[in-house]
Amino acid sequence: MKSTKFYWGALAFAVTFSSSVWADGALKIGVTPGSLADSVTVAAQEAKAAGLEVQVIEFTDWTTPNTALEAGDLDLNYFQHQAFLDNVIKERGYKIESVAFGLLPNIGLYSKKYTTLDSIPDGSKVGVANDPVNQARGLLLLQSAGLIGLRDGAGATASVADVVRNPRKLAIVEVEGPQLVRAVDDLALAQGYPAHFVNAGQPEWASKALHYSTVDDLYYAIRFVARSDRKGDPRIRQFVDIYQNSVAVAQQIDASFAHDAKLYSLPWKEAKYRSIQP
């Protein structure tokens, strides 16, 4: 198993490196740092023992993993939920699709300045993700907490422009998704992913959200995504089976979520989801 970390901002770099770094026949999986990379790395180690060579490639943004997959420089990526994937396909026309369920992270509303939602002053700055899909999820969470109201029907496509009720005159600040964990230091409240706090060396904050989303929302489960013309690759099925059935992978996921079972779920292990195919 080989692990490579790249800090790319454009496909040109992916194309440049593909002929040398990725010419070894290994199954190439793109991930983002943290719980996803850590669990995939464990699965890759087990895959090697089963005779499947896997190269885990870390990306530090949420654009390049799909660009590289579409270009054929990856066989699989594992960093996005279905809502994010649907939006990418709609905007860019990529021929990629979900092939299996991964873990389902919960999200929360975090504050390092206030201990309750009621104590947050009127006019405070509140951070949400700046990408369309994760922003919608954050806004829906703010609405479920009673802090704002959204236009009827906004749902998974909600944006800041859809806020029609804001009785406390909160200033909604759009923040790059991976930076939300740092933005909490400066804002009164921010949308956040528990695993991001663990990855940032602040595991004690993962379980301190003032309000959580449901952990039963399959639309936001992370997906294994492949090119449509390569989804039948038996190596992909083999790797997904290893990932989903590995005790060591499950233990790593639990550690990434601060050993707090309320912060995540494993949909493929739940009876009601076993018959559902992405």
Rank of each mutant, 00 (worst) to 15 (best):
P167I: 01
G51R: 09
A261I: 12
D241C: 05
Q244F: 04
V128L: 06
S3V: 15
K90S: 10
A37H: 06
L11K: 10
N66H: 14
I222R: 00
A248D: 13
A129V: 09
A250P: 01
W205S: 02
S256F: 08
L139V: 04
L104K: 01
D254Y: 10
G149Q: 06
L263F: 07
L69R: 01
V160K: 08
R235T: 06
N106P: 01
L266Y: 02
G201H: 11
V15G: 05
D61G: 08
R223P: 00
A255S: 12
L139H: 04
R237S: 13
T4R: 14
N66D: 12
A248H: 12
A43G: 05
R223N: 09
S124R: 08
H211V: 07
L147F: 05
Y219F: 12
L74G: 04
S119F: 10
V173Y: 02
Q143G: 06
G232V: 13
A47S: 09
R168W: 04
L52W: 09
F59L: 11
Y7Q: 15
K262H: 15
Y7R: 14
P65Y: 07
F59K: 01
G72H: 10
Q179E: 13
L263R: 01
T16K: 15
L187K: 01
H196F: 13
E53R: 06
Q244T: 07
W205Y: 14
S256E: 09
S124H: 10
A14Q: 09
A47Q: 03
T32W: 04
Q238W: 11
A161C: 07
K262V: 12
K48G: 09
I242C: 02
Y243G: 00
L210Q: 06
L103N: 03
E270C: 04
V164M: 11
R227F: 05
R237F: 08
V42S: 00
I148R: 02
Q252R: 11
L27T: 01
A206T: 05
A12H: 14
E270W: 03
